[in-house]
Every structure is written in C-alpha cells, then in structure tokens.
C-alpha cells in the first residue's frame, strides 16, 4: 500500500491533532519556544529524527508499504508540535538509536538496509521489551519510536483497513461503520 499525506492527517486525527494544523519541520522557521537542550524550537522536529523514524518505519510497517517518508514526516511533525516533553523523548531516543547503529554497524540508521535495521532493533530487545518512556534505551525506542509508528498506522484507517477495520479503536471514524457488513472500498472521494 502507498501511504500518503492524507493518511498521515487521518492518523493525526486519532491523536486529537487538527488535520492541517501546526505541522512544523526544521526549515519552517524558528517561531515559538526554544528547547534549551538543543536550541531547536519546541514545536519543530528535525530532519534527522524524521529520517530515523522513517527508516524504522520501513522495518515495522508491512513490507509492501510505500510512501513512508512523507507519512512519517507529516504525522510525526504534527503529533509532536504541541508536546515538548514527548518531542524530547522522540528526539533523544532516535539519536541514541542512531549512535548505537554507528557503534554496532558503523553506519547511521538511515544507511542500514532493512534487515540490518531489523537486527539492530531485535538485538536491542525492542521486540520483547515493555514500552517505557523513562526506561532503558530499548524501552524508550519501543515507546517513542516503534509504538509511535505502529500507533500512527494501526489506530487510523490506513493500517486498520489492511486488517479489516476502517474505524479502529482510537480513531474518530463516526457511527456508521459499526453498522455496515463490510468495509467497502476507499477512494479519493471517501468510502463507496
């Protein structure tokens, strides 16, 4: 399946972020409060972080998924724009994961092939660890990166449809779908 910005905006709706709202990337300017830890505005997410999350997305999303980069960019930027603490957690976990990749595989996460990135995550124990925003690197990678990506995907029609549910738990998809016998087809103009 090909992910789109529209899919990302739908995923954002599940988190309460208004679609088309304050999506800010690093090159969008420096308005707003600056995080003293890295000098980056609190409502901005850096390109490096987005690229690391997209690389992990290519591992944790189904193999046939395309369009991960813009999906992650739009989702993550919107999701983190009004939550400085969560943003800090994502940025830190991504940076530490990247440092681990450089240490173990002599390459940044973004240059690992898919199977090596998968191996990195598994050797860190990210598949088995309990998500923990305050815990070890493994727990934080699971919480801030892997589960962030899975939440975006499966709590929205994007991933839900792959499983058979167009209005998954956490997504405000209205009160008609529960009455229908099947999903119907999704088109650019909505459900048919």
């Amino acid at each position: 399946m090909n992910l789109s910005r529209r899919d990302a905006l739908a995923a954002l709706a599940a988190t309460g972020v208004v679609a088309g709202g304050s999506v800010a990337l690093a090159d969008d300017g420096t308005d707003g409060n600056v995080d003293p830890a890295d000098g980056v505005p609190e409502n901005v997410i850096g390109d490096d972080t987005v690229a690391i999350l997209a690389a992990v997305g290519s591992v944790v999303y189904p193999d046939a998924t395309t369009g991960i980069d813009p999906f992650v960019e739009t989702y993550v930027s919107g999701r983190l724009s009004d939550d400085p603490d969560h943003r800090r957690g994502v940025v830190d976990a991504a940076a530490e994961l990247d440092a681990t990749a450089r240490d173990w595989f002599d390459a940044p996460v973004t240059e690992l092939d898919r199977s090596t990135c998968d191996r990195l995550l598994r050797e860190l124990g990210v598949d088995a660890v309990d998500p923990d925003p305050e815990g070890s690197l493994s727990g934080r990678v699971r919480f801030y990166i892997v589960n962030e990506l899975l939440y975006a995907f499966y709590s929205s029609p994007t991933g839900g449809r792959l499983v058979g549910i167009e209005n998954p738990v956490g997504y405000p998809g209205g009160t008609e779908s529960y009455r229908r016998a099947s999903m119907g087809e999704e088109t650019e103009h909505g459900r048919e």
């Binding site: 591992v59 944790v60 999303y61 189904p62 193999d63 998968d118 598949d127 088995a128 998500p131 892997v146 589960n147 899975l150 939440y151 995907f153 499966y154 709590s155 991933g159 839900g160 499983v163 549910i165 998954p168 738990v169 956490g170 997504y171």
Partner: peptide, 15 residues
Amino acid sequence: PAIDALHADEWGDDL
C-alpha cells in the same frame, strides 16, 4: 488490532 499492535513482539508482515 490497534491495541494488539502496541503489545506485539513482532512487526512488519508477521505483525
């Protein structure tokens, strides 16, 4: 599925 995915010990096509 949304909740199960966050607790799973697998990802990608296996998930």
